[in-house]
Every structure is written in structure tokens, then in C-alpha cells.
């Protein structure tokens, strides 16, 4: 019996360059400043990816693999709660697509293969709008928004 899956597609227009947006996602020292988390990986296809809270405890919130990486245009990762790392069904997929749009970057974050009604669905629907707004603020003004570290 397979569980019902759902998708979300988030779009943000950022006055920046694709290189800077890509770096802001993949460089821990940048991500911590607007996301409250670091994305830790060597960013090779097949490598592990970890989403680590940027605080003293450095809690590991999410884990996954790098599926596809083509800087500065496209990044695909799998995504699961660290507590469900062993459950293959728990993994969803996140695609970051970066496109030039006039003098801006259109960043599309597609979150697919999510289990409908799951805690992860609730978490990401609260999380992505806040993270993307904070990323935009960070790249355009140098300061992120207040983000409570949450998975």
C-alpha cells in the first residue's frame, strides 16, 4: 500500500545573481545567516547532505543525498527527518532551479514525493515561505529575517 504523495512549488524573485543564490544555499557560512541551518555536503552527486542547526548543539535535523548538481542552475537533493533516515519511504525530493529573470533571479523550489498529511508536509509548508523570504532579504539587504530554527 503506497501512501498518497503531494508536491509544493515555491517561487521567489531575488535581486541577485545565480552564482550568489547558489552559494547562499550550498555554503554553510552563508546559509546559517538567513536559514538558521547549514547545508553540509561535499556537493558531489551521490554524496550525503545534512541540514544542521546553526547553534551550539548543532542538532542534525534533516538528511539526504545529492541527486544532481549543476551550479549555478540546478540542485536536486533527497530530504528526510534525521530520525527517519532508515525509512526509504520517508524521503522526499527537493529541486532548486535558478533562472535569470530580467535583472533578477527566479528561484523555484519544488518539493515533491511528500507524504500527504505527514508532519514533514506541515513543516515544509510553514518553513519554505519563511526561508525563501529570509534568503531574499539576506541577498538584497545583507540581513536575513528572524527564523526560528525548525526542521
Amino acid at each position: 500500500m503506497s501512501r498518497e504523495k503531494t508536491s509544493f512549488v515555491y517561487v521567489s524573485y531575488i535581486r541577485s545573481t545565480r552564482d550568489k543564490v547558489f552559494e547562499a544555499i550550498t555554503r554553510p557560512d552563508l546559509a546559517r545567516r538567513y536559514w538558521g541551518h547549514e547545508n553540509v555536503s561535499d556537493w558531489q552527486p551521490g554524496s550525503d547532505w545534512q541540514h544542521v542547526r546553526a547553534d551550539a548543539a548543532r542538532t542534525l535535523d534533516l538528511v539526504g543525498k545529492v541527486v544532481e548538481i549543476a551550479p549555478p542552475d540546478r540542485l536536486v537533493i533527497t530530504w528526510a527527518n534525521a530520525s527517519q533516515a532508515d525509512d526509504a519511504e520517508a524521503y522526499s525530493r527537493v529541486t532548486f532551479l535558478l533562472e535569470d529573470y530580467r535583472d533578477m533571479v527566479r528561484l523555484t523550489v519544488s518539493h515533491d514525493e511528500l507524504e500527504a498529511g505527514s508532519g514533514m508536509e506541515k513543516g515544509i509548508t510553514r518553513g519554505w515561505p519563511a526561508v525563501l523570504s529570509s534568503l531574499k532579504s539576506f541577498l538584497e539587504t545583507g540581513a536575513g529575517l528572524d527564523i526560528v530554527p525548525k526542521p
Binding site: 508536491s7 509544493f8 512549488v9 515555491y10 517561487v11 521567489s12 509548508t125 519554505w128 515561505p129 519563511a130 525563501l132 523570504s133 531574499k136 532579504s137 529575517l145
Partner: peptide, 12 residues
């Protein structure tokens, strides 16, 4: 798909 990102920006 609903994209609540602009709404979040309006909220902030």
C-alpha cells in the same frame, strides 16, 4: 500550486 512566498513578504 499556491506560492505563499509573496504573502510571507507582505506579512513581514
Amino acid at each position: 500550486f499556491i506560492n505563499p512566498v509573496p504573502l510571507h513578504e507582505v506579512y513581514v
